[in-house]
């Protein structure tokens, strides 16, 4: 809910962690931005781009950050806002002020589980590479017209739809205690995507290969079930269910493999 709007609100004070290059030291800068109703963190960053100077009046470079849709659907703008991984475009200043008070400083940092490129930009290639590893696609027989797809009952469509909204934003990985910069853990995003593709009548064809990845290094056995992931997913994807689903399938798959060998 938006807080009542008063025009003479104090300026918004932003504490932003910056970094010039992947291998350089991070540093902090403070910015003071005039308040306007209905601002979000992105509009504050836009303001800084147009008036690039710190609260102390020192000229500085505009802040670099990933952004595209501005409506929390492309997944670009994930960053740590007051310590929590979320999208800058849907982080409303009024809401944060409602919770913390108008004078509170807002801290902005890049995500910590991905390598920093510059300022708030991180490298999320790993998420996309993992999608490749799990064969994240429906293996159709080419792009000629071969008639309609399989008939799908509405309940199943509901479940598929819920899973297919994952925007590869990285919040779930940032929040996960098992996922680190160094290890190979795939994390909840991938568990959920495997479930998505393995549930689909045509996607099923590659189910075993996906399960191989799930059983391998960085797979389902590394999940500590802390459920931090589901709490931060902005698309409310049922990640706990997905993890449970993969866990059950993994058991079945292991038994099957054992019997075959």
């Amino acid at each position: 809910m938006t807080v009542p709007q008063t025009q003479n609100q104090p300026p918004i004070v932003f504490n932003i962690k910056r970094q010039d290059k992947p291998d350089s030291m991070p540093y902090w800068q403070t910015f003071s931005v005039p308040y306007r109703p209905n601002m979000n963190v992105t509009s504050v960053l836009q303001y800084i781009s147009a008036y690039p100077q710190t609260a102390e009046g020192e000229k500085t470079a505009p802040i670099n950050y990933d952004v595209a849709c501005l409506e929390e659907v492309c997944g670009s703008c994930t960053m740590l806002i007051n310590g929590v991984a979320r999208q800058a475009c849907s982080a409303l200043i009024d809401q944060m002020r409602g919770e913390k008070g108008a004078e509170a400083t807002i801290t902005i940092e890049p995500m910590s589980k991905f390598p920093v490129v510059r300022d708030l930009i991180v490298d999320r290639t790993r998420m996309f590479e993992n999608l490749k590893r799990i064969k994240g696609w429906i293996p159709v027989d080419g792009y000629y017209n071969l008639g309609a797809g399989p008939k799908i009952e509405p309940r199943k469509q509901d479940s598929l739809y819920a899973l297919s909204r994952c925007m590869t934003c990285g919040c779930c990985l940032e929040a996960c205690p098992q996922f680190t910069l160094e290890n190979a853990f795939v994390g909840a995003q991938i568990f959920s995507q495997v479930r998505y593709f393995n549930m689909h009548p045509t996607g099923k064809v590659d189910a075993d290969e996906r399960m191989e990845v799930m059983m391998g290094d960085g797979g389902i056995t590394d999940c500590g079930n802390a459920q931090n992931c589901v709490k931060v997913c902005p698309k409310e994807i049922p990640l706990t269910e997905s993890i449970g689903w993969i866990g059950r399938k993994a058991t079945v798959y292991a038994v099957k493999e054992f019997l075959v060998k």
Binding site: I138, V140, G149, K151, E153, P154, Q157, F197
Partner: peptide, 22 residues
């Protein structure tokens, strides 16, 4: 209509009627 069929085969979760049609 061919475009829709193709998207359907590629797994787009189109909304469904009770009987399972698009």
């Amino acid at each position: 209509p061919d475009v829709i069929n193709l998207l359907d085969r590629m797994g787009v979760p189109f909304n469904r009627t009770a009987e399972g049609f698009r």
